[in-house]
Amino acid sequence: MGALANLILAMAVGAALVLPLFLCTLRRDGMNGQSQQVPFLGGGSQSAHAWQRFHIRYYPMTLLFIAFEMEMMFMYPWAVVYVETGIKALAEMGMFLSILGVGIIYAWREGVFRWQ
């Protein structure tokens, strides 16, 4: 509990150190004219709001990533008991990782790691 309280305290101090930089932002808002707010494009302009249905080019990769991330959660407890359990732990994790490795190889063959 003490560690958590310290952590939160440290984070709060950090946030408090940069917050003043934004207080002066608010104060100067008055001098921001409409023509100054135009998005920067090197002299060019955008016809519409930049917020759009943004076509991300790596969407199959993100789904694969989520599966990998799940798997990571099993690895942390495994790492802690690895030395105690010995060769059995190595074998079990080797099996687990090679199952997932198959997933990566399959995804690569299907061209997932490209800009779609």
Partner: peptide
């Protein structure tokens, strides 16, 4: 993984 690749990747 396989299912998401099959469903989402066109290439």
């Amino acid at each position: 993984m396989v299912a998401s690749v099959v469903l989402s990747a066109r290439s």
